[in-house]
Design a protein around this nucleic acid. Structure first.
Lengths: 346, 346
DNA sequence: GTGAAAGCGCTAACAT
DNA sequence: ATGTTAGCGCTTTCAC
């Protein structure tokens, strides 16, 4: 026998209103195609109100096979600014459609990931979102095939799922254009590059795309990069190191595009050490638009990662009436103009 | 009639194994008190495996009134480093107990909050966690009373729920002690204070507690603060402003404790402008230990917010066999020693 | 050792 | 216009 302390049920409401459970169900779920007497409907609504009736979605789901929940599992650390935004976006979109969100992280362990997805599936989620904290191609776990799923901030090698990613190439073009607009035509250097590291000889997706965009926009204006410092993107010290080498040696760049805000922070640190002023001596533009960008002095112009919008989009694709078609959705990255770019003064 | 495309059920397994549904239920839920023949059990396990049986937790929950889910709703923006950590901690603890986590944010709107909590209750969560992104006392929503609940990073005016908060006062003491240990006995200034702003004439909880701790530890050593700059904690520029005034005017402090890392960043900026070197001319210690602390040059010594541990604790209190007793759990804040403190050289 | 049967709270044919 | 009835997939008492 089930443990008892139960809530008010439709049966209670029916008894109270002197009608059958069916009638209650009809009224409470607001069905149109059945005409219940206004009077009965009033009694039912009144009784429900009075008793504090609340539907048991678990029971409802068992019957309807719809739980009004979606599961979001990401690979690593939600403890970044971006991750939070992505989740928020997803949440908003889910809420607008009366869904609740299961959230979990796999720690990039395929086994844990499998378990989490399965746990969500066992709880009959209506759909699954498979997210990564930094854009990349991933092998898609088997479980995604059992329910509608969309890929968030990652690409699908098999091409069978819809996926949502930032439009990195366009972002690269924009960054370059900001410099071009300010009048820079030479001495433009990139810090970060494709993010080639030991583990990733081809760099990362964002790096490759941003570089393509930068080079394309520059090429169209007939200008060439004066150089690229490939480095790890993960902390300011890498940007610092790159900038130091750059500023100490040969012809000094007059503008640098940093592959993210952290790197730009490192560049600021190196510039300050050399007594160089940003943007007077050195214009800087970066990507991501984390909080750091607005904290820096001068405030950093940055092309923003549209994580919130991506989260929203993923859920709306997932929950849209039609099955999401397996295409990749590139979300524009807006530029946040601040004070780190000036006309070159040489 | 329910929409059909159904998964494998216990009935399927029973049929396949040539036993009754009861027997299947018994062996699949691993009940001890009933002795099923080894042979039957083998057949059942085999059939389940072969058919790819997965329990339908929705059905199970309806019967057992246990969903193996917990709901976490926080007030604002999970898009901070801390929030992510808190959620991660909660998640880990939930997973260890085979629970999944619903996550939502109310945007600090009581109405939205009510709806979210109700949505979770309607889905029969086993427990609720009511979280705030910055520690404070809150009026507790009615909904929390219908299920076991714990408060995370907020305090309960009524004192009827367990709550988990950082041990801010102890953190304040530690920060002061770091300076004392390095030999500072005068010229110690606080930037940030209790965070008195228009909306909060008494400052914030963390501010009050940290100040108490700082003053207490100092008093015990017979030293007095040379001053406190009350200011908004939300961005480096406030720390910058405070530090500028401080460094330009009167007797210059030789050490400053900053109420968070962002403020410390502002202090670094101001110090650099004045040609002062940290820690040689100015020792700095802060709170929170965000990523920023390790990015600064020199790296910032900071007393860490234990958000991950808090998240873990909240869930383990919630899911512990005994009802959580309504007491406040203060989680220690560990100090992260880095390079921003030196012996005073005057 | 195993099975029949009832029921968790809700929905939805089908009758009336 | 409203009620009867039969499930959704699972657990659990009680009888065999």
């Amino acid at each position: 026998m089930p443990p008892s302390p139960s809530r008010v049920t439709q049966a209670d409401v029916a008894r109270h209103a002197g009608v059958s459970r069916t009638t209650v169900s009809f009224v409470l779920s607001g069905r149109e195609d059945t005409r219940i007497s206004i009077e009965a409907r009033q009694r039912i609504l009144g009784a429900a109100e009075e008793l504090g009736y609340r539907p048991n979605l678990t029971a409802q789901s068992l019957r309807t096979r719809k739980t009004y929940t979606v599961g979001l599992v990401s690979d690593i650390v939600a403890s970044t600014h971006y991750a939070g935004e992505m989740i928020q976006g997803a949440l908003e979109a889910a809420l607008e459609r009366d869904h609740l969100l299961y959230f979990a992280e796999s720690g990039d362990d395929p086994d844990a990931e499998r378990k989490l997805l399965q746990g969500m599936l066992d709880r009959q989620v209506d759909g699954l979102i498979h997210a990564a904290m930094s854009t990349r191609a991933r092998r898609v776990p088997e479980q995604l095939r059992s329910q509608p799923s969309v890929l968030l901030n990652c690409l699908d090698e098999s091409g069978e799922f819809a996926s949502v990613v930032p439009d990195e190439e366009a972002a690269g073009r924009q960054a370059a254009k900001l410099l071009l607009e300010a009048g820079h035509r030479e001495g433009i250097h990139v810090v970060g590059g494709r993010c080639v590291t030991r583990g990733a000889p081809d760099g990362v997706y964002a790096g490759r795309e941003r570089m393509r965009g930068i080079e394309a926009a520059l090429a169209e204006a007939g200008v060439r990069l004066s150089g690229v410092s490939e480095c790890d993107w993960s902390a300011p010290r890498f940007g610092y190191g790159a900038a130091r080498r750059l500023l100490e040696a040969g012809p000094r760049p007059t503008a640098v595009v940093c592959c993210n805000d952290r790197l730009a922070f490192g560049v600021y640190q190196a510039a300050a050490e050399q007594g160089l002023s940003v943007p007077h001596d050195l214009s800087v533009v970066a990507f991501d638009d984390s909080e750091l960008a607005s904290w820096l002095r001068p405030a950093l112009t940055s092309v923003a990662l549209p994580h919130r919008e991506m989260g929203r989009r993923a859920v709306s694709l997932l929950l849209s009436p039609e099955e999401p078609e397996p295409s990749v959705h590139r979300i524009p990255m807006p530029v946040r103009r601040r004070d780190s770019i000036a006309v070159p003064h040489r």
